[in-house]
């Protein structure tokens, strides 16, 4: 039996890939929604399989090798051929300090040698840790923003909704301003799909009647699923 690449049973992911992939060369992409993490995982596997270099910074602790393995089988490769490919690298961050250091130093260092797609999964997940004082979190988040903006390579940020204290959740509002494209990967009754909320062509100014309705939608959907 050859399995399709699925996020969960009955949710093939390939459908999601095309659209996100198209957006990446157009600039930084923020992917939200309940399928953001599996979509980012699969996308990094797809790109690595086609010879692209990928740096996966796993802040959500969610890289699922089985997603890539199923994809590999589908295209007739051994999973190791993709997962162990030179230029496909991963590092997990378990605290917001680690995540910040990773993006400030390590990623920059690697990018200087070779360009690559940078995927950051759940950058805000680690910032929800109540064990770290809010003052410190704010300072670190500033550094994170700077580090993300300094990345000149294509960037995909996958940020699904996570639970957290109210003040910490305000950080979610900051993410869209870091990117050119905001997209949502979700499952609705027709299956998984991606909706582009902040396209490249649309310039965003706060004066344009407040928040864009679609962006507001992004914020609303942040909490819909765990």
């Amino acid at each position: 039996m050859i399995p399709t690449v699925q996020v969960s049973p009955g949710v093939p992911l390939e459908a999601l890939m095309g659209e996100v992939r198209i957006q990446i060369p157009r600039g930084r992409v923020l992917l939200g929604g309940s399928l953001a993490l599996p979509a980012a995982t699969l996308l990094s596997g797809v790109l690595a399989a086609s010879g692209g270099r990928v740096l996966f910074v796993d802040g959500a602790n969610a890289f699922d090798p089985y997603i890539v393995a199923r994809y590999a089988r589908r295209i007739g490769l051994h999973p190791e051929d993709i997962l162990n490919r030179e230029g496909f690298l991963l590092s997990r961050a378990f605290t917001c300090h680690q995540l910040t250091v990773l993006l400030e130093e390590r990623v920059q260092g690697l990018l200087e040698k070779d360009p690559a797609l940078v995927v950051v999964s759940g950058p805000l997940n680690t910032f929800m840790d109540e064990g770290i004082p809010w003052q410190e979190v704010k300072a670190l988040f500033k550094r994170l923003q700077t580090a993300l903006l300094r990345i000149s390579a294509p960037l995909l940020i996958a940020q699904p909704s996570v639970a957290g204290a109210r003040e910490r959740r305000t950080l979610f509002r900051e993410l869209p301003s870091l990117v050119e494209t905001v997209a949502l990967a979700e499952k609705d009754k027709w299956g998984p799909r991606v909706r582009i909320l902040k396209p490249l062509t649309q310039t965003l100014r706060p004066t344009e009647g407040g928040t864009l309705p679609l962006l507001a939608h992004w914020e609303e959907t942040r909490w819909d699923e765990r």
Partner: peptide
């Protein structure tokens, strides 16, 4: 220390 970059494999 953050994890060193390694292959997903």
């Amino acid at each position: 220390e953050p994890e060193a970059f390694k292959s997903p494999w």
